[in-house]
Design a protein around this nucleic acid. Structure first.
Lengths: 123, 123
DNA sequence: CTTTCATATGAATGATTGTTCATATGTTCA
DNA sequence: TGAACATATGAACAATCATTCATATGAAAG
């Protein structure tokens, strides 16, 4: 089984050297484990070039799956799989129009988040 | 070798059905391939619970590696590896203080990006 | 109802990634 | 100089993930 974290930790950094007051303070300020997990999951969705591209084309226009695939020069199946991921993260929504399914951005958070990321890499 | 994308695409969606005008418009508005790649790489860094936690503790206080490991209840090596990733993405910086290395946030973009993500998952 | 078309989905595969273990580097203090 | 300590790093492994292929679903038109 897995050894206790604390035990392994002490093999490297002696307990006495840890600044317990600082450690206790920062852990007290941290959000719930589940919240942090959800946050990481959200960013993970933005962490793929294909999905970023899909969001970018949807910035300009609502589109059906085939057109997105054509715009990104990728297979229909690959796009469909990624649309599912984006939809589950509630970043996009879909409506049916005859034989086609039209995808669009769910809300403006998406633009905000991407623009903030852009600002950072442009620094 | 890999078959041509267009060829494969046409096996599923006939060329004639693609809305070429829309496709041409949205692709024209897209940033450089390299920019999109960098953007995805940036979000990938935020897409891990351990790294999110590290950033959260650094919101509260500059800290040495051992204290971060203690705060997150993880091994020193795991933290050190992730600190490297965060530093390469220029989200954090470090300074030496005797035997210890103190890590701190690089700038306020980090807070902004995380707060935007938080807003989305709290909707 | 049957064919055609657009999209969705499941399994398989190759690539990427986070953590661990072992060890190296570099600093301080005796 | 050498011992002790904090951090960094490389290799290995398990887990996760994006894409592909094959096929299923579901709508529309004949």
């Amino acid at each position: 089984m897995e050894r206790d974290r604390k035990e392994r930790y002490e093999e490297v950094c002696q307990e006495v050297h840890v600044h317990e007051d600082v450690v206790n303070f920062v852990t007290g300020e941290m959000p719930e484990e589940e919240t942090l997990y959800d946050l990481a999951e959200l960013f993970k969705v933005f962490g793929d070039t294909t999905r970023i591209k899909i969001l970018y084309v949807l910035f300009e226009s609502d589109m059906c799956v085939c057109d997105i695939a054509a715009a990104l020069n990728m297979g229909q199946s690959a796009i469909s799989h990624q649309l599912r991921v984006l939809k589950q993260a509630q970043l996009i929504k879909s409506r049916r129009d005859g034989k086609q399914v039209i995808y669009s951005l769910a809300d403006d958070h998406v633009r905000t988040i991407i623009n903030n990321g852009m600002e950072h890499i442009m620094e």
